[in-house]
C-alpha cells in the first residue's frame, strides 16, 4: 500500500505532475510500434522525474518489471505472426515481430514507471486531492477515498475469517465453491453491517448527504508549475517529432561502430 506521510510535501506539485504524466503517455504511446529508439529516448522523463519525487530510478525500474507478464502474453505473438525482415545485426536478421515485441515491452515499462512515479510523488491521497482540484466530481473522489480507507480493514477482517476457518480444517488458498460462497457471503453481510455503522457515525456528526471537503492543502500553483508542465510538453513533442535517433545513429555509426 502506498501511504505517504502527508506531512512531507511532494517533490513536484502533484497536479502539475499528473498533467505532465498524462501528456507524456499521450505522446509516448503515439510512437509507432517500430520506433524503438524513439521510445527508448522517452525514458528520460522517468529517469529525471523519479529522484525529484523521492525514489531512485533503479527502484522504479525494477518495480515496473511487474508489468511484464501481462504484456508478454500478448506481445509474444508479434514475433510469431510478423516474420518480415526488418533489422540486421551482423549476419542475424531480426524480424519486425521481434522489434515490435521489444517496443511493446518498452511501452509497458515506461507506462508503468510513469504511474509508479506519480504515486511516489504525493501518495494516493495526495493524488485524490489534485484530482479534486482538477474538477473531478466529488462523488468519485469520496468513493476512491472510502475504498482506500477500508481496503486494509477489509483485508484484516478477511484474514480473521480465514484463520477461524482454516483452524478448523487446514490451511489452503483455494476453497471449494460452496465454502467460498458462504465465506464471501458472510464477509459481504459484515460489510453491509459495517457500512451501516459508518453511516450512523457519519450521521451523529451532522452528516446530511454531502461529505464536506477540508482544504488545508497549500496548493500554490505558481508560474513555476506552468513552466514545468510546458517545458516537459515541449520536450515530449521534440522527442516525438524530430527524429533524434537518426542523428544519434549518424554520430554513433561514424565514431563507434
Amino acid at each position: 500500500m502506498e501511504f505517504r506521510d502527508q506531512a512531507v510535501p511532494p517533490g513536484i506539485n502533484s497536479c502539475a505532475l499528473l498533467i505532465t504524466t498524462i501528456c507524456y503517455l499521450i505522446v509516448m504511446l503515439s510512437v509507432s510500434p517500430t520506433g524503438i529508439s524513439m521510445l527508448i529516448l522517452f525514458s528520460i522523463f522517468p529517469i529525471i522525474t523519479a529522484p525529484i519525487c523521492g525514489e531512485s530510478y533503479l527502484k522504479i525500474m525494477l518495480r515496473s518489471l511487474w508489468v511484464l507478464p501481462f504484456i508478454l502474453f500478448i506481445g509474444i505473438f508479434n514475433p510469431i505472426f510478423d516474420k518480415e525482415a526488418f533489422l540486421k545485426i551482423g549476419e542475424l536478421d531480426i524480424s519486425r515481430g521481434w522489434v515490435t515485441f521489444a517496443s511493446v515491452i518498452i511501452r509497458g515499462l515506461l507506462g508503468m514507471q510513469a504511474i509508479l512515479i506519480l504515486i511516489s510523488n504525493d501518495g494516493f491521497l495526495g493524488l485524490c486531492n489534485s484530482l479534486r482540484r482538477l474538477k473531478v466530481p466529488d462523488l468519485l473522489i469520496t468513493q476512491l477515498q472510502f475504498v482506500f480507507r477500508y481496503l486494509l480493514v477489509m483485508m484484516e477482517e478477511l484474514q480473521n475469517m480465514r484463520r477461524a476457518r482454516d483452524a478448523r480444517s487446514y490451511g489452503r488458498d483455494t476453497y471449494p465453491l460452496k465454502v467460498w460462497g458462504n465465506m464471501m457471503g458472510q464477509l459481504f453481510i459484515r460489510t453491509v453491517d459495517r457500512s451501516q455503522r459508518i453511516h450512523a457515525a457519519m450521521i451523529s456528526r451532522g452528516f446530511s448527504g454531502t461529505i464536506p471537503t477540508y482544504n488545508n492543502y497549500s496548493f500554490g500553483w505558481s508560474y513555476k508549475n506552468t513552466l514545468y508542465v510546458c517545458s516537459w510538453i515541449a520536450v515530449f513533442l521534440i522527442l516525438r517529432l524530430i527524429n533524434i535517433p537518426y542523428y544519434i545513429s549518424l554520430v554513433t555509426a561514424s565514431h563507434i561502430l
Binding site: 502527508q6 485524490c128 482506500f148 488545508n216
Partner: peptide, 16 residues
Amino acid sequence: DDQLFMPTVEEDVAFG
C-alpha cells in the same frame, strides 16, 4: 474503524 472514515486524521476531526 467505523468512527474514523475519512482519509486523514485532520479531515476526520474536521468532519463534524
